[in-house]
Structure formats: C-alpha cells, structure tokens
Computed example of a mutant assay.
Amino acid sequence: MTVGPNDIRTHQERRIAYHLTQGHGPTIVFLGGLRSDMQGTKAVHLEEWARAKGLSYLRFDYSGHGESSGSFEEGCIGDWAEDTFEVVHALTQGPIVPVGSSMGGWQALLLARRCPERIAGMVTIAAAPDFTEDGYWATFTEAQKAQLERDGQVELPSDYMDPYVITKRMIEDGRRQLVLRDPLDLPFPVRCLQGTADTAVSTQTALRLMEHATCPDLHLTLVKDADHRFSDGPCLGLIERAITDVIGAAR
C-alpha cells in the first residue's frame, strides 16, 4: 500500500511532503540531492521497484524543495538533517536503509551519526559530504567571499540546473555538519556508487569517504562514463542491486 502524497509538520513548523509505501523488511529511505525533489527519476523508480518487491519505501522533499514548505534560499544542511530525522522518526519503525544521492549522501551520514541503531545498511550515489566547505568555500575567489560577506549570498553556475544561490548561512551551518574531519563510524554494510564522468562530485570525494570511514563492510563501485545523475537504466540497476546487497548483508 502506498500512502501519499501526504505531509507532516516538524517541530520547527516546516511542512514536509512525502510518499510512503508499506511493505516488509527495513524501510528504504531515499534522500535526494541539493535542489532535487521526490519526483526525480531515481526516487520514483526505486519506489516502483520496492513496491514490486514488497519492500517498505519512503521518499520526501526537504523544506525548500519540491512540495514541502519554505524556500531553498532559507535552508541549510542542518535544517535538512532535522527534516530527515523527523520524517524518519515519525513515519518509520525499526531498521532503515538510507539511500542518499549527492547531498543526500551527506544527509545519510548525518542520520547515521544521530541514530546509528536504526541503520541496517546504507547506499550512497555520488555522495557529497562536506561539499559546502570543500566544494564551495574552498574554491570561492576572494571576490566571491567578499560578496558572500557583503550580500549574504552568491550565485554559482550548475551543469545540471539553474544557478545555485549559496547563502552565508549555508556555508556557516555546513561547518557545523562536517563528517570527514572527525571519526566516522559506520557499523553496518555500506555500498557507494560513483560515476567517473561526474562533474559535480569527483571520484576523489568517493575515495576520501571510503578511506575515512570506519566500516566493516564498505564497497565502492566506480562506473566508467556515468555522470552525476546516475539515472540511466544500467545505473538504476546498480542501485537496485546495491540495496538488495546491503539488506542481505544486514540479516
């Protein structure tokens, strides 16, 4: 049975829209990327796949994304981490398998840090942990840094959509959410997927995450010529197999 679209209201009074499919096994929780939404190819495809397998599945929009309340420019990594935790807490019981795409990979790691006892396994797709610091701030010119301080925001071009508006709040909050500076314990099976033609997240980021994390069962799969979307037929099949693999390994 699928429940949705529905919404919940968080303790921060943000309205979060979601779709929930009831089934068996750990609940697969899809965590989308920055400025993506739950209507994206991967989120919808995996819902259909989970339903066909009889698996529980949850997809939702962070605040400022898709059908949820708020504007993107008001949000930050910490806000979306709160949204994720509250949605998972309110709508699921028992073990979960976060599937984090891009920024959603960072969110999956933050969720694991907050409630590791809930995580049966994890799949990341072009995970982008710490990107506000290592991807944005580290590459800002002095002029961009000055503009951020003066105007509170700066626009950045994107290969995949309209320019991003990056706010001073996002940068400053991102520093409080970093996961690659301190020990990162992932005591469950993890499967990381990364395309070599990804222009938004480099293979070096995937390798850094693999080397930094303490995990008894972590596999990184590099896919030649796959881009950041990672949503063509073969890539979707790899995601399905990765989810199946972590669920099986967690038993």
Rank of each mutant, 00 (worst) to 15 (best):
D182Q: 15
D61K: 04
K42S: 07
P98V: 05
E155I: 03
M161N: 11
S101P: 03
F72P: 01
C215L: 05
V154M: 11
G40Q: 05
A127V: 09
G248D: 11
W137M: 13
P216R: 12
P157Q: 08
R251Y: 09
L180R: 05
E82V: 11
L58M: 10
A128W: 02
I8A: 02
A120K: 04
A242M: 03
A128N: 07
G4Y: 05
M161K: 12
T41S: 11
R169E: 11
A120Y: 03
T21V: 13
L46G: 01
D217V: 06
L180N: 07
E172D: 15
E73I: 14
E142R: 15
T84M: 09
G94S: 10
H24I: 07
S36G: 13
P163I: 10
A17W: 00
R14E: 12
D79F: 07
A138S: 15
T21L: 12
V223D: 02
R118S: 07
A206Y: 02
G94V: 11
L111R: 04
D185K: 09
P157C: 08
R9T: 15
A126P: 01
G64C: 10
S158E: 08
H89K: 12
P163W: 07
M1A: 13
C192H: 05
G78D: 09
R118E: 04
I77M: 13
A127P: 02
R118I: 08
A90C: 09
T196R: 12
G233H: 12
I16G: 01
D182W: 07
M122L: 15
H212W: 15
G94A: 10
P183D: 13
G104V: 07
V179E: 04
T221P: 00
D162R: 12
T92K: 07
D83T: 05
A81Q: 09
E82R: 10
P95I: 06
L207Q: 10
L186N: 01
S56V: 06
